[in-house]
């Protein structure tokens, strides 16, 4: 199976990169642009066939290494092979 993991700064935490891109987009004339948040996208291939244990593994990876939960939150999708 494959997992797609998205990591972003928590709401309320200043995202200087997102703000810089927001301003650039607005300068380019995209007037409808509201808040922009930057994050990371990580793809992980997993040699597991059981969806439940696969999900537990991904969650543990996020908590232990992939995200710093002091400042970041994570979401993931698991795609069956």
């Amino acid at each position: 199976m494959k997992a797609k993991i998205y990591i972003t700064l928590k709401n309320g935490i200043l995202d200087p990169q997102g703000r810089a891109i927001q301003q650039s987009l607005q300068t380019l004339g995209f007037g409808s642009v509201g808040e922009v948040r930057i994050g990371k996208f990580i793809e992980v291939d997993l040699c597991e066939s059981d969806a439940t244990s696969g999900e537990q593994t991904i969650k543990a990876m996020c908590e232990k290494l992939l995200a710093n939960t002091v400042i970041e939150e994570y979401q993931y999708e698991i795609l069956e092979a």
């Binding site: 700064l9 935490i13 200043l14 200087p16 990169q17 810089a20 710093n68 002091v70 400042i71």
Partner: peptide
């Protein structure tokens, strides 16, 4: 990152 000290580092305000 170890959690020996509390908090985290963000990118510098002006990037």
């Amino acid at each position: 990152e170890l959690g020996i000290l509390p908090g985290a580092m963000l990118r510098n305000r002006d990037l």
